[in-house]
């Protein structure tokens, strides 16, 4: 059985992608088979840290939207009244407004004339590539689409090649986060050492615990802030697996897309020991 490790943290920009790519590379260097899943489908970035990616497959993610058969519509307005999202207006005939539609299918069910049918539209893309000794699956939500959920699900369905599945999750603690960490064996919180990081992480922890997922932590930019994140971890009984100090030169390298596993000897050693700690935990 593959082990699914979700890297998440609540706040954005805490280093989730850096740690996800770095950890995935650390597993590769130990001879493990790894799939890296970029589940931040609104703003995917993991691919930027690979120089040798070769695309293996590219697939559209579809979703169905209702279409009104004009000749059968009697403008009775039941579809509009049913729709809780104001996605249907009725002028001479019913008109569906795609950008407000949640794809619930309710209008199709309530139409007494059977005048509404569904048509597939593209809402995103899933790209699978290999490089750096691993498989990278990235999801891309089409710009203008509001709901990343279906794209996240497709990335998870596609990225199953490795023994280790490293999940680079979106920020926040709402539906995209829930969709991403669902089914994970453990959540590795990437939390920056600032009051902001600590505040946002608390919420992510609550969701993960409600979902029955174990939580561990990597503190990033350690030494920069007030150490509040360590107090949060202690209060919550969360083990801190690694502390990554803030280094200006490393930051400069990462900004330019240098792979985190090669960015510095210090960071590599931390990633290796993080990998070893995870392997020891999972394999006993």
């Amino acid at each position: 059985m593959a082990v699914r490790i979700a890297l998440a943290g609540g706040k954005g920009g805490t280093g989730k992608t850096t740690l996800a790519v770095g950890l995935a590379r650390a597993f590769v260097s130990a001879g493990e088979r790894v799939s890296l899943l970029d589940l931040d489908v609104e703003e995917p970035n993991a691919h930027l840290f690979f120089k040798d990616l070769r695309e293996v497959s590219r697939r559209e993610v579809l979703s169905s939207v209702p279409v009104v058969r004009q000749e059968d519509c009697t403008a009775c307005g039941r579809c509009r009244d049913f729709c809780r999202f104001n996605a249907i207006v009725v002028f001479d005939k019913a008109i569906v407004l795609e950008e407000f539609c949640h794809r619930c299918g309710g209008c199709v069910l309530v139409c007494p004339e059977g005048a509404i049918e569904e048509r597939e539209v593209v809402i995103g893309e899933v790209v699978k590539a290999v490089g750096g000794g691993l498989e990278l699956v990235s999801g891309w939500l089409k710009v203008g689409q509001a709901n990343p959920g279906p794209v996240i699900r497709e990335v998870k369905a596609e990225g199953v090649g490795g023994q280790w599945l490293v999940l680079d999750c979106p920020p926040g603690s709402g539906c995209a986060f829930v969709e991403s960490v669902e089914g994970a064996d453990l959540l590795l919180g990437v939390v920056e050492d600032t009051p902001f990081g600590a505040h946002d992480f608390r919420k992510a922890v609550r969701v993960a615990r409600e979902m029955g997922i174990d939580v561990l932590v990597v503190v990033n930019r350690y030494g920069m802030g007030n150490g509040e994140v360590l107090r949060v971890c202690e209060e919550e009984g969360i083990e801190v697996l690694a502390k990554v100090p803030f280094r200006e030169e490393v930051h400069r390298s990462l900004a330019r897309g240098i792979d985190p596993y090669s960015a510095s000897g210090e960071l590599r050693a931390i990633l290796d020991s993080l990998r070893d700690a995870l392997m020891a935990r999972v394999r006993g």
Binding site: R80, R84, F85, N86, A87, I88, V89, V90, L97, F100
Partner: peptide, 9 residues
């Protein structure tokens, strides 16, 4: 959700 369409309606 959909304040614009509701207003046009």
């Amino acid at each position: 959700s959909g304040a614009g369409p509701a207003a046009v309606q």
